[in-house]
């Protein structure tokens, strides 16, 4: 349960990020450390604006200035690492490519032959449940389908670590649960090491081996919760009593943070009000 740094595939060490804004510096991530073991599913959960996407960008190597180190398979990263595959919070399919060509994108970069590329892309398209949509353009798909295309594209690059930033945040609850099933199934099938960023408790408990709860401003690690639920899991587990206990526990943590966040935002508005 406790730190096993030697077999960690991903290790974040004392990450600090601050942004300079017009209203002064904002500490987005404050001294966050954790590690992810091979094959593990770790979720990072926290209220909106607590620094989750910032952390995601740090681990993905997209953010230039931060303090601390990120280790991937023993190497300290310095820019995007080829072992990490990212799925972004925003819609990120290429609108000028068909579903197949979107998913085959990372394969194209490796110089794989066309026939083989298409074959392999098909496999991943099937995996996310988009069979039959191979030749559509993203503009012809729903938001949830596009997110699945992004997921398939990242999976096609066969990353050692899958890093996802609220991939289903924009979807309705039913679709989200079903896609959650898909992700779980894929994760179990590929034994995929996954780091999921989310603000959805159900999603986090349903899928994770461990959940890292973040605080609101500054974004610190509040707690790391082990989820001892049997695998393989499906969305049916949502009804179980043990599941409910985990949700309640994390909700208690988050409610404190979220309401503190709201209070701070309200105070901020109140402070500004007299001038307006």
């Amino acid at each position: 349960m406790s730190d096993t740094p030697n077999n960690a595939i991903l290790k974040a060490d004392h990450i600090n990020v601050r942004f300079e804004t017009a209203e002064g510096p904002v500490i987005a991530v404050d001294d966050v450390s954790f590690d992810v073991r091979p094959g593990e599913f770790l979720s990072v959960i926290g209220p909106s604006g607590c620094g989750k996407s910032t952390l995601f960008n740090v681990i993905g190597g997209l953010l230039g200035s931060y303090q601390g180190t990120v280790n991937v398979a023993g190497e300290t990263i310095n820019g995007p690492h080829q072992s990490i595959g990212m799925v972004f919070q925003e819609e990120s399919t290429f609108p000028w490519r068909t579903v197949t060509d979107n998913v085959a994108f990372p394969l194209e970069l490796t110089g794989m032959g066309k026939a083989q590329r298409i074959e392999k892309a098909k496999h991943f398209i099937g995996m996310v449940g988009l069979k039959g949509f191979e030749n559509r353009y993203p503009g012809e798909l729903s938001g949830g389908m596009r997110q699945r295309v992004s997921l398939a594209r990242t999976l096609a690059s066969e990353p050692k670590i899958l890093l996802m930033d609220e991939p289903f945040a924009a979807l309705d609850e039913q679709t989200r649960l079903l896609l959650g099933d898909k992700v779980l199934q894929i994760q179990q099938e590929l034994k995929q090491t996954t780091l999921l960023i989310t603000h959805n408790i159900t999603e986090a408990v349903q899928m994770s081996d461990r959940i890292l709860v973040m605080t609101y401003r500054p974004g610190k690690v509040k707690r790391i919760v082990d989820i001892d639920l049997p695998r393989p899991r499906t969305s049916e587990i949502v009804g179980s009593e043990a599941f409910g206990r985990y949700v309640a526990q994390i909700w208690a943590d988050l409610r404190e943070e979220a309401s503190r966040g709201m209070r701070e935002q309200e105070k901020h508005v109140m402070d500004e009000a007299p001038q307006g």
Partner: peptide, 10 residues
């Protein structure tokens, strides 16, 4: 985000 996708694929 599209630029970032490119960066994430090196």
């Amino acid at each position: 985000v599209l630029v970032n996708v490119g960066r994430s694929f090196n």
